[in-house]
């Protein structure tokens, strides 16, 4: 009796876990899609017909990160490999941050209020410099990193 109850409990837990996984996975992809990050990458590289592969890449990335939570495997590569991973993470975060800022639509308002018009698009370079400087200061100045 108690063994059956335990088994039922495990099945229930597994079902709850699977549901949670589906919801989180769907939410992640929906969020990225709403921000049009993969769409922009495909448009920029003229590879609109490769979206199936990009979908698979996003799913695989999220899946491997989830697996790593359970089994903390390691690849044992040289530290330089971590540099490549870091650059890819950075580009992704940069696109994500820009997409978020753009969705809120602050910059057109700034352009209107200041009367600068399309000039503002060129000032994006200062956003870029600000992001790089801010990020470097954050990592290089020890008191900032907990």
């Amino acid at each position: 009796m108690s063994a059956a109850a335990a088994a039922a409990g495990l099945v229930l837990l597994a079902a709850v876990g699977a549901c949670a996984g589906v919801v989180v996975g769907a939410a992640y992809v929906a969020f990225m899609n709403a921000l049009r990050v993969p769409a922009r990458l495909a448009a920029l590289t003229y590879t609109r017909h490769m979206t199936r592969i990009y979908e698979a890449a996003m799913a695989a990335g999220a899946f491997l990160a989830a697996v790593w939570l359970v089994f903390p495997y390691t690849l044992r590569l040289a530290p330089a490999a971590a540099g490549f991973v870091g650059a890819a993470m950075g580009v992704y975060v940069g696109m994500l941050a820009s997409a978020l800022a753009e969705t809120i639509g602050v910059i057109p308002v700034v352009a209107r209020r200041t009367g600068l018009g399309t000039w503002v698009t060129r000032l994006i370079w200062f956003v870029v410099l600000g992001k790089i400087t801010g990020s470097l200061i954050y990592w290089l100045y020890p008191p900032l990193v907990p």
């Binding site: 044992r76 971590a82 940069g94 820009s98």
Partner: peptide
């Protein structure tokens, strides 16, 4: 995950990451 070693401040990852953030904004 990548190197198998623990590092409190993995700058080799963090500096390319920082430059990547700027590149991402430009790309977007």
């Amino acid at each position: 995950l990548v190197t198998g070693e623990a590092a409190p401040r993995p700058l080799v990852l963090q500096i390319p990451y920082s430059i990547g953030v700027g590149v991402g904004v430009l790309l977007f």
